[in-house]
């Protein structure tokens, strides 16, 4: 008991999430083994890269959702916020013809602004997170359609835009390793967010709010401000996801987005983050997102009908949470 406490020098997530992470990681490995035995095509480099590329958008969104969930909240607006940010980038780059950098900045700022608004609804107006972000989900969905005139915005005028996700910085340095930038960005976002969660005051308050918000408030901490900050950070990460998906499609698709929040929350839950708040890790979420993509990819290679894939994913969620409950009961 004390050994694990002393070795976990930075992690403040409890032992449970550590154990769950191991379990989730083991399931991922087992899935990969099973699929590579079942089909020689699975372990092809091109297929691995396809899996990673497919994970990038959901992975980044899931990281955004993890932050809010650790505070004990929930964010249903991540999917439509992603689309909204993509549309904003389209407005800045295609409608106004601004340079690429400004489009990227606009998407991230739009995400942060929306997150700030959600956070304010939750912290200041005391609207339950489920309701506040449900409202935001619909507002953002509508705004995306209104702003874009319900038509996709293409980025043909901005040549470098597709490179954000599809280019390969690593591949240009190491020719044998054509890892797309989208995947690189996913890992960079994961590392940065993990660092913020484990090492900074914002991260510490994220956990503290989820653990016991009233105790934090009565310690003289401005809990509202920190909570809004967490939602804002989460929103700006959704902005990054918006850029990734727009870059991959070379367009902002205003009708897209709804439903993505559930995949993101699924990844978070499979990764061992508690929906009641106070514990969770980014690495867990990353593994959760990978499990979902590996499943989808492997089942497709095995020619399992797409309809069945969602049945399997749903079962995995229930299984993952149940094993967590089982282990906690034993302790």
């Amino acid at each position: 008991m004390s050994a694990s406490a002393s070795t976990a020098s930075v992690s403040i997530g409890s032992k449970f999430s550590g154990a769950h992470r191991l379990l989730a990681f083991a399931s991922l490995i087992i899935l990969i083994l099973v699929f590579s035995l079942a089909s020689p095509n699975f372990m092809q480099t091109s297929n691995i890269i396809a899996i990673l590329q497919a994970t990038s958008v959901n992975g980044v969104l899931a990281i955004a959702a993890t932050l809010v969930i650790i505070t004990g909240g929930i964010d249903l607006s991540v999917g439509t916020l992603m689309t909204f940010c993509a549309v904003i980038a389209g407005v800045v780059l295609t409608f106004w013809g601004m340079p690429l950098g400004l489009g990227v900045l606009a998407a991230i700022v739009a995400g942060a602004a929306s997150g700030t608004l959600s956070g304010t609804f939750v912290a200041k107006l005391k609207i339950p997170p489920f309701i506040a972000t449900l409202g935001m989900m619909l507002i953002l969905k509508g705004l995306s359609l209104v702003i874009s005139g319900t038509r996709p915005i293409y980025f043909n005028g901005t040549p470098g835009f597709t490179q954000i996700s599809q280019g390969s910085l690593i591949g240009s340095v190491i020719p044998g390793l054509p890892i797309p930038n989208g995947v690189l960005i996913l890992f960079l976002v994961a590392i940065a967010t993990s660092f913020i969660l484990e090492r900074t005051i914002l991260g510490r308050f994220t956990f503290a709010l989820g653990s016991n918000e009233e105790a934090v408030r009565l310690s003289g901490v401005n809990t509202d401000r920190w909570k809004i900050a967490v939602y804002a950070l989460s929103g700006s990460i959704c902005g990054i996801a918006g850029l990734l998906i727009a870059s991959r499609l070379n367009s902002a698709q205003p009708a897209l987005g709804q439903g993505y929040e559930l995949d993101a929350i699924a990844a978070v839950v499979i990764g061992g983050t508690s929906l009641s708040g106070g514990r969770g890790t980014i690495i867990g979420t990353l593994i959760g997102a990978l499990i979902i993509s590996v499943l989808a990819n492997g089942l497709r290679i095995l020619s399992v009908a797409q309809e069945w894939q969602t049945v399997v994913t749903g079962s995995i969620i229930i299984l993952a949470v149940y094993t967590d409950i089982l282990r906690r009961r034993r302790l």
Binding site: A208, S211, A215, R279
Partner: peptide, 8 residues
Amino acid sequence: HFGLATGM
């Protein structure tokens, strides 16, 4: 409820 973040 009001004094400690017991999970931390």
